[in-house]
Design a protein around this nucleic acid. Structure first.
Length: 273
DNA sequence: AGTGGCCCCTGGCGGC
DNA sequence: TGCCGCCAGGGGCCAC
């Protein structure tokens, strides 16, 4: 599942891969729902002959800005990936959209078809709805405490809420709460200032560490998320996610799995209070 | 404000 | 071996 670290890795790879300055020659839409509500002709017309001038990330969105000022927002959701592929390489069954440059293609590949590409002149409609960027300087521990202390929802729910904080998904929510030694069912308002500060440190450490490892690639079904088609190396660092009934690395207590808001949640019942 | 249910999808996997 | 049915899960939407 691409979360902030995986999306950040994709953006960095697109930049170093030379996408900036590239002119779009043609666009193939192989699955119409992947481009939201736009007709494929409009989508294509908005992109062809355009040049990409920047690649940035906001939450889990990849934001490509074109020289006309139009934005292409890409959300990978569950199984999406963006890869640069040699122009002579054949298409894959699960390719959904192919943006063609002179010498290579930018391929949106998405087996489960949840991902979306949004061509818009108003990207702020999507991006401004998001909560703070967890790795920005203005997201301080005090800011997190301020956002938490009046919330009655459980922490797992809040961490997954993109309006509360942007970019965290199921893997890093569980890992963050383990690192902070806080139980996922605790409510926002129940946290002391010290606990909120510990959670802030855990969020930033978990995300930074995962970015360093180029993200997490889970073994089966979920594919790779780096734009070079490689597996991210963070999987071996996971402390609780998908470790149900195996011993906690700290105290040997079996990791428990519960469901919170339809999401599987993994934690150590001894370490996390 | 918070929660639960359902939907979108399909590969993978457990059960028989 | 082969088939069936369930599950995962980000996020939108709706009901309560």
């Amino acid at each position: 599942m691409p979360e902030l670290p995986e999306v950040e890795t994709v953006c960095r790879d697109l930049r170093t891969g030379g996408v900036i300055g590239e002119k779009i020659i043609d666009v193939l839409v192989l699955w119409e729902k992947s481009i939201a509500d736009l007709h494929p002709d409009q989508f294509r017309a908005g992109l062809v002959n355009n040049t990409i001038i920047s690649v940035t990330r906001r939450g889990k969105y990849i934001h490509l800005v074109l020289h006309t000022g139009t934005s292409l927002l890409i959300h990978l959701r569950m199984t999406g990936s963006l890869t640069l592929r040699d122009i002579h390489q054949t298409n894959d069954l699960h390719d959904r959209v192919i943006i063609q440059f002179t010498n290579y293609n930018l391929v949106f590949h998405d087996p489960r078809k949840f991902g979306r590409m949004i061509l818009t002149n108003n990207p702020e409609l999507w991006l401004d709805a998001l909560g703070p960027e967890p790795l920005h300087d203005d997201f301080t521990a005090a800011v997190l405490y301020e956002r938490l202390h009046h919330r009655k929802a459980r922490l797992k729910t809040l961490l997954l809420d993109q309006k509360f904080i942007a970019g965290i998904g199921n893997i890093y929510a569980d890992e963050t709460l383990f690192l902070a030694k806080i139980h996922p069912c605790r409510t926002g308002e129940s946290l002391s200032k010290e606990e909120a500060f510990a959670l802030h440190r855990a969020i930033q450490h978990t995300l930074r560490s995962a970015i360093t490892n180029r993200g997490t690639s889970l073994g089966t079904g979920d594919g790779n998320f780096t734009s070079k088609g490689e597996a991210g190396q963070h999987g071996r660092q996971l402390q609780v996610f998908r470790r149900t009934q195996t011993p906690c690395y700290i105290c040997q207590t079996p990791i428990e799995k519960i469901i919170i808001n339809q999401r599987s949640t993994h934690f150590c019942p001894h370490c996390q209070k």
